[in-house]
Write a protein that binds this DNA or RNA. Structure first.
Length: 314
DNA sequence: CTCTGATCACAAGAGTCCCT
DNA sequence: AGGGACTCTTGTGATCAGAG
């Protein structure tokens, strides 16, 4: 089929001129001189046999006919732009880079990534981890997406989606619960070892205060370098860990860990999926973001705008 | 008078056709 | 197949016109 199309460069010049209402601004966008835009528009008018602009003093206005035409053109150029972006991204095959703490990676991201790969076998994801969530600094040089703990006061150039709240509850091995020293009431903790991570040392103290028990220092406590080690130690029956509910959910379901009491401490922080605002248009990023937000029933689908932006909203 | 924006004439480069 | 002539496309700089 032979397309009955006017010169495409002329269409491009016309669309930009119509969008700005100015040949000069269109010229700037397309990196040519205003004269070139003027020429292209004239050429297009001659080709179509239709006047596209009403030339007024120092400005150009669309005619009723051309306004409709340009709306279609803009939409078509937008779609072409998106399709081109997809093609380039696919060609480049640059993996989507996700960064999070090792603990979040193994307990939350891995199981979801398996499902993501099953659904999108051609997408490449590069997962990098740091020892702690707090150390996951955000830089577009190192990652496209970061999953980390925080409050909602992100910088204005960052888009953040709340994934799940931080809720802490004691967890231990079911063997310890059945065969270890008595563990019916929180007071019974004094007969056990409390497993703490260096990363979030405040968790136990806050929980103990909430249930009216003395500070952590009065208990037999053992420290570990990371939360991941704490959970492993708890599963091996070394003591009681302060578990991040969403991160130990699978172990609680499988019975590898149990929560002796349904008493959880809701933290002011939450786990967020964040990325730089300028990356928002990347198809790979949008695809993964939309998918992961859809997967987790606890994830908020509402775009969390940074405070600076929200305060400007009406 | 100055600044801004559109138009026009000209030039350069790319593509096509034709001849050898 | 290669080279020259011609045509077409596109951009630039000069110029003109109007607003402030």
């Amino acid at each position: 089929m032979a397309w009955q199309l006017p010169p495409l460069n002329a269409l491009r010049a016309f669309e930009a001129a119509a969008r700005y209402g100015s040949f000069a601004q269109a010229a700037e966008e397309l990196c040519v001189t205003p004269g070139a835009i003027s020429r292209q528009v004239k050429l297009l008018e001659a080709n179509l046999g239709v006047q596209l602009f009403v030339r007024a003093n120092r400005q150009v206005r669309l005619t009723a006919e051309s306004a409709q035409y340009v709306a279609t053109l803009t939409e078509l150029f937008r779609r072409l732009d998106v399709a081109t972006g997809r093609l380039r991204d696919a060609r480049r095959e640059r993996p989507l880079r996700i960064m999070c703490s090792a603990n979040v990676a193994t307990r939350w991201v891995f199981p979801r990534l398996r499902m993501f790969h099953a659904q999108y076998p051609n997408r490449h994801v590069l997962l990098t981890t740091s020892l702690t969530s707090a150390a996951v600094a955000f830089s577009s040089d190192s990652a496209d997406i970061v999953i980390r703990l925080g409050t909602d006061d992100w910088p204005a150039d960052v888009v953040a989606h709340r994934l799940f709240d931080s809720e802490l509850t004691p967890v231990c091995s079911p063997r310890l619960l059945r065969h270890g020293p008595r563990l019916r009431e929180p007071e019974d903790l004094k007969n056990h070892t409390l497993l703490c991570s260096d990363i979030r040392p405040a968790g136990w103290g806050q929980w103990l205060a909430m249930v009216g028990l003395p500070p952590l220092e009065t208990f037999n406590a053992q420290k570990f370098e990371s939360s991941a080690l704490v959970y492993e130690a708890a599963a091996e029956g070394l003591g009681i860990a302060m578990g991040e509910k969403h991160l130990v959910r699978d172990e609680l379901r499988s019975g590898r860990l149990v929560a002796p009491w349904p008493i959880s401490l809701r933290q002011p922080e939450a786990f967020y999926l964040i990325y730089q605002r300028q990356m928002q248009a990347t198809p790979q990023l949008r695809e993964f973001r939309d998918w992961i937000l859809q997967q987790d029933p606890d994830a908020e689908r509402v775009l969390m705008l940074p405070r600076a932006v929200r305060s400007r909203a009406p």
